[in-house]
Nucleic acid binder design. Sequence first.
RNA 1: GGCUCGUUGGUGAAACGGUUAACACACCGCCCUUUCACGGCGGCAUUCAUGGGUUCGAACCCCAUACGAGUCACCA
Length: 487
Amino acid sequence: MKNVRTRFAPSPTGYMHIGNLRTALYAYLVAKKEKDGVFMLRIEDTDQNRQVEGAVDIIYETLKTCKLTHDEGPDVGGKYGPYVQSDRVKAGIYKKYALEMVEKSKAHFCFCKEEDIAAQREIASAKGISFIYDDPCKLLKKEEIDLKLQNNEPYVIRQNIDKIGTTDFVDEVYGTISVDNSTLDEMVLLKSDGFPTYNFANVIDDHLMEITHVVRGNEYLSSTPKYNLIYEAFGWEKPKYIHCPPVMKDETHKLSKRNGDASFQDLVSKGYLPEAILNYIALLGWSPQGEEEIFSLTELCEKFDIKRIGTSGSIFDINKLTWLNGVYIRNMDFDKYYELVLPYIKNVVTKNYDFVQIAKILKDRINIFSEINEAIDFIEELKDYDNSLFINSKMKTDKDSSILALEKSLELFESLNDNEFNYEFLHDKLLSLPTIIGIKNGQLLYPLRVALSGKAFTPGGSIEISSILKKEESIKRIKYAINKLKS
RNA sequence: GGCUCGUUGGUGAAACGGUUAACACACCGCCCUUUCACGGCGGCAUUCAUGGGUUCGAACCCCAUACGAGUCACCA
């Protein structure tokens, strides 16, 4: 059997959104599941009007950060190049095949004006009739065509489709799709600017590049018969088709880059980990065999199975991604985590505190890095808070008990050296204090946390916080709280 | 409008004619705990869009209907 070869063939028209990335992932997995599978990148830039500056770089960058390494592509080369379609246009590839189609009577020259066809389409749709263009140019005699060509009349090359019978194919995901040929319209293969349409270029390149499995969104499901007719015209072997269900934003709308946050880049900048994003989107539209859901890319390669791709659209659930991201953070090796988290911490804390300690109290408590800001902003600066925070029925604290707790804590802190402000030592001292005074742990530690942080909830408790703030700052905040309570 | 595809809880989903319809997220309880989280335990679809049919037996097969999506470009 031939080596499996798949491609990711985006058009460089802007951001990379999650649906796109998932298609790339699946194409990668289909290839890499096999020992010698090849995953390649091809840039489909046949629409000269839609080019977006820097879009190709975003594609490279995204694939790189996701570690979806392509074996062949514009930047890494390969035997089947060039890998950018506009370069292939220059090499005359598409025109040659388009002309061959004409020769085989599977396509014809068309000199019709675009506006005329559009007008007809308009009329038909106003009448509610389905429109399939019946091209008069098909009837042109050879001499007439030659004359028009000599006069440099603009033309396109349009596919010929016999309106009789049906065309069907087997999709690996959706099963047998059967379409009546009379409903197929004869699409343009080569545009008047000499560029091929996506429809044509895609087929030519997939064949020339020996793609064995075509992985793409299911919006191509209904036009696949037309592509197959091209394969048949040349007598080429058709690839296996793997059409993927859409990724939705809600029940009725596909995910689009229109409304922002669905792009890969957005998610990364919100503090999501590429590995977690990839893991999550793998689960949208595909389900693993067992109950395990956490997979590295390598594991995905092993587990992935085309047969388990679903057929209905799935709604992108940021909730679950967030949870999954938290799992990745919690499972991460501390050094790696620290390296990633440090910039976020430094973004909030500019004073010289123990960043390792801060990172530690955060690790089990955040799902995404962007939560850090709010979680530890009190370290840098105590914001004013209300005395009512000290009163907590569950903790059995009120104004007087809080004052007592704070005064005792203050006494203790003042008796310590600054270098005794470490977690172990403070843990010993602070936890033995309630017994001595004859109160419950919470009655001491809760008011202390409020005083140190100005918040009722914080990552870590008062022991952790005081060990981070150290002697001087802790005492300052306790004194402030006592004054506040007494005034 | 024609054609193609889809429809299992709020979300992702499993189930390959016979199960109490898995599991995960979310949600709700309880436990652990100095708070929050983490972790642990438990709850959460009498029902698989609806209506028919086939079958001893249907979420799974068939047919209608409804709803949704995709497509019908010199866009991909």
